[in-house]
Structures are given as structure tokens and as C-alpha cells.
């Protein structure tokens, strides 16, 4: 295996993980729709509201859509950028800008990742769980927090791969700008 092939193979693996997580995020979105429609139907027609929808949507589905879709959205260029300075740069300038952005983003999400690991571990070790009997789901709290390190972890891999690719040549930045 040569050095040039290694990143591309790793990248393909990352892409695979991203796609899988994005599919889960899409399913969470569908679940959000269904659960809320079900709540209306149960409440209005059957007078038996589910009662756990708010907590479920907020602590699980919203969190899943965001964190599971995070790296996928980054790769597919979903995040809005302000381009007019970038467009006036040559390849070297573009490369430099992309590199700074990726490194700073890596730093931010490394901190968020670490924070996510800490809160998940904290909730796990303290055995945090709402008591049953309320309307809310009595699920361990860490199952909601774990989406943070999961989503940020994959984004960190993606950013690392992108930074590594930048270093191997400026063509990359232009390729990205086009997508």
C-alpha cells in the first residue's frame, strides 16, 4: 500500500459511516413527523395523548438529526459560507483559507467532542434516569448525550482527512469549492 492510497481508503470508510449516520438522521426526521402526528391523533381522536412526545422529540430526535447529520452535511457542503473573498483568491490563497478553516473547526469540535464524552460518562456513572410514572420516558440520560461524541467524532475524522488531503495538494480545495 502506498502512502497516497491510505488516505483515500480511510476517507471511503469515513464516507460510509457518514452516509449510514445520515440515513439514521433522516429516519429520526421521519420519526419526528410520525410521533407528532400520532400525538395529535391520540389526543384528539382517542383522548389518550402519548405524553412523552415533547421529551422524545427534544432529547432524542432533534439531537439525532443534528449530530448524526453533522459530518454528512459538512462533506456535502450544506453549510452556508461567505464566498466573495475566496472566489478572488488563487489556488494558494484558497488552500490557505480552507486549511485555516478546517484546523479551527477541528479545534472547536475537539472541545465539543471532549465535552460530550464527559457529559455522557457523567450521566452513565451517576446512573441518571428519570423515575417512571411521569409522562416522560424513563430512559438513561446518557443515551441522549451519546449523540454528541458520536456525531462530533465522525466530523473530527472527516476534518482530519480533509486536512491531510489539503496537505497533499491544492487541487482539493478547488474540487470542494465546486461541489
Amino acid at each position: 500500500m502506498t502512502e497516497n492510497e491510505a488516505p483515500s481508503r480511510a476517507e471511503r470508510a469515513i464516507t460510509g459511516i457518514e452516509n449510514a449516520l445520515a440515513t439514521l438522521a433522516a429516519l429520526a426526521l421521519g420519526a419526528m413527523l410520525l410521533v407528532m402526528v400520532a400525538e395529535v391523533v391520540m389526543r384528539y381522536i382517542l383522548s389518550a395523548p402519548l405524553g412523552w412526545t415533547v421529551g422524545f422529540v427534544q432529547d432524542y430526535l432533534m439531537v439525532a438529526v443534528f449530530f448524526l447529520g453533522l459530518s454528512y452535511s459538512y462533506r456535502t457542503g450544506a453549510h452556508v459560507t461567505i464566498d466573495f473573498v475566496y472566489r478572488r483568491q488563487g489556488p494558494r490563497g484558497r488552500l490557505a483559507m480552507a486549511l485555516i478553516g478546517d484546523v479551527l473547526s477541528f479545534a472547536l469540535f475537539a472541545l465539543v467532542f471532549a465535552a460530550g464524552v464527559a457529559t455522557t460518562a457523567h450521566a452513565w456513572t451517576l446512573g441518571e434516569i428519570p423515575a417512571p410514572g411521569g409522562g416522560a420516558l424513563s430512559w438513561p440520560v446518557w443515551t441522549s448525550h451519546v449523540f454528541v461524541p458520536l456525531g462530533c467524532g465522525v466530523l473530527l475524522l472527516r476534518l482530519a482527512a480533509t486536512i491531510a488531503a489539503h496537505r497533499s495538494g491544492p487541487a482539493r480545495a478547488d474540487l470542494e469549492a465546486g461541489t
Partner: peptide, 16 residues
């Protein structure tokens, strides 16, 4: 939380 329990004990349904 506890208010859910109260509502349930009344035979009503808690809506969040």
C-alpha cells in the same frame, strides 16, 4: 414529573 403523576391520578392525561 410529579405533576404528570397528579394528572394521571385524576384519570386525566398529561400533555407536555
Amino acid at each position: 414529573g410529579t405533576i404528570d403523576g397528579v394528572v394521571t391520578s385524576l384519570g386525566a392525561s398529561p400533555v407536555s
